[in-house]
């Protein structure tokens, strides 16, 4: 565990807390893509299939539980909670799951470390996480007024990915034989998807104006 990895996890956790804060206290999920949230829930379910039979540390175990629980509760809120559900921009959140899920599944079946169920599911979760933000980015682009919490949520998610890249660079130089092509390429693709958003987010922050993405 290095400082980049820990900072990355904490940023990831903060992004989820910001989203839960918005949903739980303001009772609003305006500007949040349910499709992205459901894809993240699927990411955690398929990645942590080994949660009960492969123990690495208390820290990992608890974080896995937190990620699973929070992602499922966000989906529950957006689908089942009346007030929250009413604020959901359903008509704008039109990205199709199959365009994301099927290619990731096929890729995981072809490019993996071992052709077993758990291994393919784990690889699938990496590919899926890389592109799961797409419905959210599409929704952001369609939303005229991006509120602060939504902007912060996406910014924190992007920052988490950037910190994980630094973590891998650090591990590459400090742990002999640390090479993980699948994780790295999926992570790099994921981080690049945020580049455009980052650019406009920092611009709006610098000029102290409301965040708005060009159409």
């Amino acid at each position: 565990m290095n400082v980049f990895r820990l900072a990355g996890d904490m940023t990831h956790l903060s992004s989820i807390l910001v989203l839960l804060l918005k949903i739980h206290t303001i009772k609003s999920c305006a500007g949040i893509s349910l499709k992205t949230q459901e894809l993240y829930a699927l990411v955690f379910i398929t990645r942590y299939l080994d949660i009960f039979d492969r123990f690495t540390s208390i820290y990992n175990f608890l974080m896995k539980l937190i990620f699973l629980g929070s992602s499922l509760s966000i989906v529950w809120y957006m689908r089942r909670h009346k007030a929250v559900h009413r604020s959901y921009d359903k008509d704008q959140d039109t990205f199709r799951y199959q365009f994301i899920v099927l290619p990731c599944l096929l890729l995981a079946l072809v490019i993996n470390h071992k052709l077993t169920f758990k291994e393919v599911m784990w690889t699938f979760s990496l590919y899926l996480e890389a592109v799961a933000i797409l419905p959210q980015l599409v929704l952001l682009q369609r939303t005229r007024n991006i509120d602060n919490l939504t902007g912060q949520y996406v910014f924190l998610l992007g920052a988490y990915r950037a910190l994980y890249l630094l973590n891998w660079v650090y591990r590459y130089f400090t742990e002999p034989g640390f090479v993980r092509w699948i994780t790295w390429i999926a992570g790099l693709v994921q981080t690049l998807l945020y580049a455009d958003f980052f650019y406009y987010y920092i611009l709006s922050w610098k000029n102290n104006v409301k965040l708005e993405l060009p159409a």
């Binding site: 990895r5 996890d9 990831h12 080994d50 492969r54 690495t56 540390s57 990992n60 974080m63 896995k64 990620f67 470390h113 071992k114 291994e119 784990w122 994980y164 973590n167 034989g177 993980r180 994780t183």
Partner: peptide, 10 residues
């Protein structure tokens, strides 16, 4: 190195 050790990240 066994592939299992790849999974110490979240």
């Amino acid at each position: 190195k066994p592939m299992e050790s790849f999974k110490d990240e979240l």
